[in-house]
Nucleic acid binder design. Structure first.
Lengths: 219, 219, 219, 219
DNA sequence: CATGAATGAGCATTCATTCAT
DNA sequence: TATGAATGAATGCTCATTCAT
């Protein structure tokens, strides 16, 4: 019994120790990822360096290599994380209402909100050279494309459901994306012009334009 | 007379020499600017270096410093030149017709055409960190802003002229810009998705949307 | 008795555990040594790193330090093992015949064969910086020298036995070594010139030269 | 006249200035080359680094790149310089006498002398990985091979001239090289065994062996 | 006994910039 | 005016080594 309990104690200890390590590991992973995103946001592609990331979190440059293969891998993971958050926010918005028109407005709002909340991720995902990231992680990057093509499904459904007018739903989808991307991109790079209010107003105007032109009740 | 003529001769010589120098000066200035633009176009922010520019035109790196303060100054001038071309193209399009509706379509076409023709200038001007450029050349940069605000004048005129519906012309102007910027930006960074045809189709759809929603004949 | 048997049991257990450990210890020692030799063989001095050795055998880099002091120690042991194989091959050849002339030819063949079969061991032992290895392991290295001096014994014996002409047997021994070393060294570093056939032909010619000059039946 | 003389003075000054620069340039070139050879001699392939070379001559690492493309280029040039000296020494020895037998002995002496005088160059040329150097400068390296094949011509001539016995002159040439290379290589890497006297004695013995076996007056 | 984490030094290379000439 | 030389800092990356666990 005593040996059993002792063994249990040891086991527990080991378990806890392992847990702590695991936590530490995750924490550093997070730390790096966050620092990378922040640094990228501040300095763009240029001005982003592993050494700066390391310095920022108080570790040696080499430490990063325990968590990421190389510079590209780190950047891809920042982008990928952004993409996952983005996608989940879009999905949530899509499911937020039974009324497709409402859902679409929610998706637009979520799109812009994401861009404003995670400008660095957004920049990396959609504004800097996504092709570079694609090259280093083609397989995972294909998932992005698949996710993006979901839009077209939604638009086709919206047409079918009579929420949008008959027409080239693929083109509508592209327009929708271009419009939202334009809003977010301007609000990020021209933030000295587009503060939150102006951005919000712009979004509303754009949505109004879209539905006025393509809504089913458009004459 | 002889002294006069002699002095004249000397003066002429001096003048000519000065002229030649001035020409050479302008020529090298141009040479550098062109080489810089080309190099930036080829390699983007990365891959752009003063040394490469110098090597490209067959001068020593130091020579560049006779004409530009530093790397940022050179880049700003590249962007600035891009901006001037952009502006002049927009003006030409604006004046291309008496019919304001036609003019606006021409401006949209010119906007996208510029973006596709000079993607790296466009990137430098509107997508990379324009704030950085602004910081180093605030005065000149303000001109850009003034130029951009011309849009609002045009939109106000279009409303006045009955080409566009009554409404918030400033918001329309923003929407217009966001729409066009979105199209160009996607076509640049997502060029593996948006080839020329898809971009063109997107532009037409977007214009159709805009005028359907805001055109004066919209119901 | 019971206590005795119990103690015996414990002792046995302890012994077995120790044995197992000892075995494992030896196994890992072997594993490391083999991996190191292989890695060195593949990549030479460059491309050899403890990390790679560790990775190759599925252990952590730190584990190597249980068995070897440091990188140099490991390399010395690789070389040392090579030397032992080399020496044993030479001995076997020396004893392969009662006829000393035959034995000497067998030794030469074995010498070259070793060099061609383990070029990187040979390189480490005789071509790279043996002085460095000597410095770190002087005592063991002295054994090498002793082993090498056996040659002189053999040559003295050969002279005595009338297989070689009277003369400076020490110099003959040096010449013999230089000749063989030259053949192996060229065949290793100039392998693009000396393929197996050319090397073999070279060896035969060299032996012919040696025995023609120094064989007892030489006139 | 005064202007003429002045212009001359200026010209002279410029010329001298240019000369000085040219000299400085050459001097640094030399400095780097020498330091590289020395460093390579001390530390072998491993332990050779541009930074160490730079530090050794009191310049910044980058300075080297003004004179050599990269690390490989520098090493190749060290080897190439060695090769040229080697070749010229061999040629001089070859032409040192009308008696081919004398010439050959002179060549052997020059071979060993070169190896002992420039052990670092010799090591780089013939003992380290010449294949690596070949890869980076194939064209120039082919010259080496051509030069080396001159040996076979000489041996054929020696047979023809009756200095060497009839026989496989190509094999004799290989043997000759292997013998000399063995002597030099041992004397370099085993210098704690082969001091100058022993090396010299070895050379004489080896030559005696060679000519006893292959000399035309051999019975 | 072996691991995993981390360090600190080192490397080749590139670059913006300065400066004497 | 433009060059050529040189610097010093930076970058991505690899490695031998240490050490708590």
């Amino acid at each position: 019994m005593s040996s059993d309990s002792s063994s249990t104690r040891t086991t527990r200890l080991r378990q806890r120790s392992q847990d702590r390590r695991e936590n530490e590991r995750k924490e550093l992973h997070r730390l790096i990822l966050d620092a990378a995103a922040e640094l990228f946001a501040q300095g763009g592609y240029e001005g982003f360096s592993l050494r700066r990331v390391a310095e920022h979190i108080g570790y040696s440059p080499g430490a990063i290599y325990r968590y990421f293969d190389d510079k590209d891998d780190l950047l891809f993971n920042v982008a990928d994380e952004g993409f996952k958050r983005f996608q989940s926010a879009q999905r949530a918005a899509a499911l937020s209402s039974d009324d497709l028109a409402h859902s679409m407005r929610a998706m637009a709002a979520a799109y812009v909100a994401f861009g404003r909340e995670y400008p660095n991720h957004y920049r990396l995902m959609f504004m800097e050279r996504p092709d570079l990231l694609f090259q280093s992680h083609q397989d995972q990057a294909v998932e992005w494309l698949n996710a993006l093509s979901e839009y077209q499904v939604i638009f086709a459904a919206a047409v079918q459901a009579g929420v949008l007018r008959q027409g080239d739903s693929a083109a509508m989808s592209d327009t929708w994306w271009a419009m939202l991307h334009g809003i977010v991109a301007l609000s990020i790079t021209m933030n000295f012009l587009f503060d939150e209010a102006r951005t919000e107003h712009l979004l509303q105007t754009a949505l109004e334009m879209f539905f006025r032109a393509y809504g089913s009740n458009a004459l």
